[in-house]
């Protein structure tokens, strides 16, 4: 499912975290990486991208439209309901994890994370989607 050509969309309101995640997935071999600074911008990009987005890595806590709301929008649209979606969050409280799983997130990674930690999560998403 994922290949070096997979279009990865990194969503975070903090420039630093967009840079960290983009750098990490770039080092993993992904060559097509886009960025959005909140859920609203990401949702527009998903719908308008010339090369379809193949993987979303989104922060949770963002102004305008949160990562959870972006996930809900994606899952409610027939065209994107199977789009692999990884949430990145500084929060890992029990209630929030349950809410994200209920909304259909493939996996989540808690900040701070190592490169290996992110890689493991992406592999888990890949396995889940490819059986």
């Amino acid at each position: 499912m994922f290949s070096a050509d997979t279009h990865v969309l990194v969503v975070d309101d903090m420039m630093t975290m967009r840079k960290i995640v983009s750098k990490t997935v770039g080092e993993m071999g992904f060559s097509q990486i886009s960025q959005a600074e909140d859920g609203r911008a990401a949702w527009s990009l998903i719908q308008e991208a010339e090369v379809p987005v193949g993987l979303v890595i989104s922060d949770w806590n963002m102004p305008n439209m949160s990562g959870l709301d972006l996930l809900k929008a994606v899952r409610s649209h027939v065209k994107y309901q199977n789009l692999p979606f990884l949430l990145v969050t500084a929060e890992a409280e029990k209630g929030q994890v349950a809410e994200a799983l209920k909304a259909g997130v493939d996996s989540y990674v808690v900040k701070p994370f190592s490169k290996d930690g992110l890689r493991e999560k992406l592999e888990a998403v890949y396995k889940k989607r490819c059986g």
């Binding site: 420039m15 630093t16 409280e93």
Partner: peptide, 21 residues
């Protein structure tokens, strides 16, 4: 500069889990 906010955001998020949960 943005990184100072993000680092604190991560530290707070971690500490908050322990304080809340």
């Amino acid at each position: 500069e943005d990184a100072a906010g993000e680092l604190l955001n991560i530290i707070y998020g971690q500490a908050k889990v322990e304080l809340n949960d």
